[in-house]
């Protein structure tokens, strides 16, 4: 009997294999479109980002599956948390995630998002991403190769197509839970406090 992550991944994948999906034809059609076209937020939040360029460029060409990059959170469907997630990054990820428009999905990359990975005893890195943000799909490995990332995307597409990838609803329903966890590591003020002094310098803009 597997414990921990392996078990949870089984549960996640178990959903994929079940056939009992209830969606009307309009939803079915829309989910089909959503599944066919996935815009990924092109932010690298950790070391795993190094595997993303080959995934999206000529070598592995994710665009053939309808997966392409988006520069702003407003236009993205999927945010990839690529690897270890320090408090400072987490703050930005939360902010970005909240700026994305529904429906939105979260793909977590690498062992660090699963259980802290090699940073399991780091004072500055969270261990379990799903405590702070809802995760649709984990792709494990350190680092996962582009093939596994694509596999993760295909699994996510399947979930979207069946209308089961509904983490954004989960986030809205259990907002207090997530908020509590976020505040526990980030302090009371979750939004980043920010001073843009580089704007004022000459030559910038």
């Amino acid at each position: 009997m597997e414990t921990g992550f392996l078990q949870e991944q089984k549960v996640l994948e178990g959903d994929l294999n079940s056939e009992n999906s209830h969606q009307n034809s309009v939803d079915f059609l829309m989910n089909w479109f959503r599944k066919q076209s996935i815009f990924v937020l092109a932010y690298g939040t950790g070391c795993g980002a190094i595997e993303m360029p080959p995934t999206f460029t000529s070598r592995y060409d994710a665009e053939r599956l309808g997966i392409r990059g988006a520069a702003t959170p407003r236009q993205a469907d999927v945010i990839i948390v690529s690897g270890y997630c320090s408090y400072k990054t987490l703050r930005r990820i939360i902010r970005t995630y909240e700026q994305m428009s529904n429906p939105k999905y979260l793909l977590a990359l690498g062992s660090c998002t699963v259980n802290g990975g090699m940073y399991w005893d780091s004072y500055n890195t969270i261990k379990k991403l799903e405590d702070y943000l809802p995760v649709d799909m984990y792709v494990n490995g350190c680092m996962p190769r582009p093939e596994s990332i694509l596999e993760g995307f295909i699994a996510l597409q399947k979930e979207i197509g069946e209308g089961k990838a509904s983490s954004w609803q989960k986030y809205e329903e259990n907002y207090e839970f997530y908020r509590k966890n976020q505040e526990a590591v980030l302090g009371k003020k979750v939004e980043p406090s920010y001073e843009a002094d580089w704007y004022l310098y000459e030559g910038g803009l």
Partner: peptide
């Protein structure tokens, strides 16, 4: 949907505030 705050703009994951030079 209309954001509540005028600072709720896509700003590279940062949150600008009153002191930020946005009107340039």
């Amino acid at each position: 949907k209309k954001p509540k705050n005028r600072f709720d703009i896509a700003y590279c994951a940062e949150e600008p505030n009153e002191a930020t030079h946005l009107h340039y």
